[in-house]
């Protein structure tokens, strides 16, 4: 067989190739298991001994040359896009994928906030929604018959006078502190219930996130530092923050915390009631009476606690103007998150 002849034929075959499929055919024709080169190699044993060496070398050279030519051709084909051409793909057509579901926006906000605090070293703890009067009120220094209870209208259970639906997540403070010794760094997300008349900003069920830190030497300045880290993570580095004195039975000193309005940047608009500030949470140093209730020594330990309404934060962050949308669960609402 004339090796030169074969080489010419290879070159003419390759020059006719325009598609990946045709190239593969050429490859099989020459380099396949039953291809021409295999045939040549198979012929070597039949040659006179003195010719075998030279012939073998020639076949090998041919094979290498062929491999190079095919590789080159492949490159040319790829660059010219003719591999894709075969599919005739119109990228204007919809892509094919399975539709994902979604996580409720309230859960997303809870997860986002809890993640901020867990990065700081807080643990997530949950508590029951049916609570005792003690955990919800007395243990938190809220006296039985005092106007301070008016802020915590509560659902009670028929036939089970000991129990109520927690009106805030703070009872978990009492639970956690009774079960564990300091140091404690805990966040508590969950549902809470209050008999409020329903309107665009009030519902009888909503979500809160409670947080508290108890250790030796925890100070009000720590509360300010931690909450600023939190608020900037959620609402952006550019926001301003202020602490206003307030009253909660379970903290002393207590504060309401405002951020500069994220809509008008503090200039005053309808969302912030022209004040330039938005109240986002309540906080304070845990009252020594609460420590006494749970058996902590208030001389040794100090701590802070804070609580916020998740719906309010979600509404501010997403620009939602009616709290009822969260629980209507219209798919056209859910699909936006």
């Amino acid at each position: 067989m004339d090796i030169n002849l074969i080489q010419t034929q290879i070159e003419s075959d390759l020059s006719a190739v325009t598609t990946a499929v045709a190239l593969e055919e050429v490859r099989v024709k020459y380099l396949g298991r039953k291809g021409l080169l295999a045939e040549l190699t198979g012929a070597i044993p039949g040659l006179p001994v003195e010719q075998r060496g030279a012939f073998g070398k020639e076949v090998n050279a041919l094979k290498n040359k062929l491999l190079n030519l095919i590789a080159e051709k492949e490159k040319v084909l790829k660059n010219s896009g003719s591999v894709l051409k075969k599919e005739n793909l119109d990228l204007g057509m919809p892509g094919i994928a399975q539709e994902l579901g979604s996580i409720h926006p309230i859960t997303q906000i809870i997860d986002e906030i809890c993640a901020i605090f867990t990065r700081m070293g807080f643990s997530i703890v949950r508590g029951p929604e049916i609570e005792t009067e003690y955990n919800n009120f007395t243990g938190l220094n809220i006296p039985l018959e005092h106007p301070s209870r008016d802020a915590f209208d509560t659902f009670y259970l028929k036939n089970y006078s000991k129990f109520l639906l927690r009106s805030h997540t703070s009872p978990v403070q009492v639970r956690a502190m009774k079960a564990h010794k300091p140091p404690l760094a805990i966040v508590v997300p969950g549902r809470v219930y209050r008999p409020d008349a329903v309107d665009a900003s009030h519902l009888f069920m909503f979500h809160q996130i409670e947080g508290f830190l108890v250790d030796e030497n925890i100070k009000f300045s720590d509360l300010k530092g931690i909450l600023e880290l939190f608020a900037k993570s959620v609402f952006g580095q550019e926001i301003k923050m202020r602490f206003r004195p307030h009253f909660f039975p379970f903290t002393e000193p207590s504060a309401e915390v405002d951020i500069s309005c994220i809509i008008c940047k503090g200039k005053g608009c309808s969302v912030c009631g022209r004040k330039g500030w938005l109240e986002i949470l309540g906080a304070g140093m845990i009252h020594p009476n609460v420590f006494k209730q749970v058996g902590y020594n208030p001389e040794k330990y100090t701590g802070f606690a804070f609580g916020m309404g998740v719906e309010r934060i979600a509404m501010l962050k997403y620009g939602i103007n009616d709290i009822r949308l969260f629980f209507e669960n219209d798919l056209r609402f859910l699909k936006q998150f």
Partner: peptide, 12 residues
């Protein structure tokens, strides 16, 4: 006037 500080949080 109360400053901000960040406490060393000892995780529970």
């Amino acid at each position: 006037k109360i400053p901000q500080s960040v406490p060393a949080i000892r995780p529970s």
